[in-house]
Design a protein around this nucleic acid. Sequence first.
DNA 1: GGCGTGTTCAATAATTCTCTTGAATAAGAC
DNA 2: GTCTTATTCAAGAGAATTATTGAACACGCC
Lengths: 228, 228
Amino acid sequence: MADHGAKTALYDALADSAKALANGRRAELVDVLAQGERSVEELADEINQTVANTSQHLQRLLRSGLVESRRDGTRIYYSLSSPIVTTLWRTMRRAAEEHVADLERLAADYVGDRSKLRTITRDDLRARLRDGDVVVLDVRPEAEYAAGHVRGAISIPIHDLRSRLGEIPDGSEVVAYCRGPYCVFADEAVRILTKKGVTAVRLEDGFPEWAGARLPAAKANRQRKFTS
Amino acid sequence: MADHGAKTALYDALADSAKALANGRRAELVDVLAQGERSVEELADEINQTVANTSQHLQRLLRSGLVESRRDGTRIYYSLSSPIVTTLWRTMRRAAEEHVADLERLAADYVGDRSKLRTITRDDLRARLRDGDVVVLDVRPEAEYAAGHVRGAISIPIHDLRSRLGEIPDGSEVVAYCRGPYCVFADEAVRILTKKGVTAVRLEDGFPEWAGARLPAAKANRQRKFTS
DNA sequence: GGCGTGTTCAATAATTCTCTTGAATAAGAC
DNA sequence: GTCTTATTCAAGAGAATTATTGAACACGCC
C-alpha cells in the first residue's frame, strides 16, 4: 500500500475520540455532562480535582470535539456536543462491564451492597407508567431535573428527601432514579423510603439512558439570571 | 464523598476499554479483527508494523479483555471477544466522523476520490435483495468471506477480480462490498467493473456493519450459486 | 536430541500524559 | 480605574506509552 502514511493518519484520527475518553477523570466529566451543561468549577467539584486540572481535561475534550463550551458572563459552561457522545460513553461502559476483569468488584466497592435493593428496567417502568400505578421520583439536583427528566416524574433532590417525604402520595409505589448505574442517589432514596415504610425500587439506570432510548421525557425551563 | 478512592478506581476501570482503543495501530487491529480471527503475523502485515510491536499491542488489547486468543500449533490467533467490541469500534468511528475536525480530509487522503462512485445503503441493499434483482459481490479475501458474508453474496477477492470477471452473470447489476467504509477494495471493484461496462455500485459500509444490524448473513464455506 | 518458525519478553530511548504550582487573562462589580 | 471571581496558561516533575532491538520461548518436524 503506497499511501500508508495516509492510513496511519486516518486511524490515528479515528482513535482520537477514544483518547479523549481514555482517562478516568475525563470519563467522570462526560458522565456528569450527560446530565446537562456545567461550569468548570461545578465540574471540578464533582470529580474532586483542582479547577486547573479540570480545565485542562475539559480543553482536551474540547479539542476532540466531544464537548462544547459557551461563556455566560464570567463563567464558562461545558456540555456534550451531541447525543452520539452519550451513546459512545454508554457503549464504552457496557464494553467495560462485559470485558474488564474486576469491574464488578470495583463497582461494588464504590456503590456498596445493592443485593437488598430491588431494581426495575426501563421497559418495566415504561409499562407501569402506561398503567399509571406508580410514582416516579427524580432525586438528582434540581438543575438536572430541569434540563430533562422522565415524563411525569417528580423532583426531590436526594439531600431534601428526608424533609420532603410528605410530598409523596400515601400508599403509592415509588420508582427512584438518578444519573445512571454508577450513581448512588437513587440507592440512598430507596433505603430512606423503605425505612419509612414506602415501597420503593430503583430504576436500573438513569435519565441519560432513558432519553437515549427515546422514552417519554420532559424538559422544564431552567431559571437563569440575565444581566443587561 | 468518603470513598472517592473507590470512585476514582471505578472510573479508571471504565476508561480502560477506551484506553485499549486509544491508539491508531490498535484501532487498525480491531478493524481487521472485526472481519474474523487472524494470526499475529497476518495482523502485523495488515497494519504495517513489526511482529514484536503488533504482539505488544495485541497483548494490550488482550489485557483489556476486548480480544481473545487461541493457540493452534505454532500460531496464535486473535479475535474480538464479543459483538460489543464491534459495536464499540463502530460507535467510536461515528463519533470521530461527527466531531473530529479534518476527518473528512484525512479519509479522502486515504481512500481517494469517491465522488464518482455510486453508493447504496444497507437498507437499500436489503430491499433489492428481496426483489432479487442484484448480484452482491464480496471482494474481501476468501477467509473473510468464509467467516461470514452477506447472504447470497458471491466471493471474488479483489486481486482475482480481473481474471474472474466471467463469473459475473451478464447484464446484472452488481453491489460490491468489503471490510467497511475505510476499506478500498470495493471502490477498486466498482472501478474495474464499470470500466468493463458492468453496472456496479458500492455498499457504503462493510460486512461487520451488515452483521451488526442483524441483516441476513451466512457463514458457510460454500458460496451460493447464482440462480436467475 | 537439534532446527526452523511464530510469538513473546526485556531493555531502551523518545514521546506523551497527568497533576501541581503559580502567574496571567477576561468579565463583572464597585 | 481597582478589586473580585472564574477560568486559562505556562512550566515542570513523575509516570505511562510507543516503537525498536535482540534475545528467549514454544511448538512442530526431522
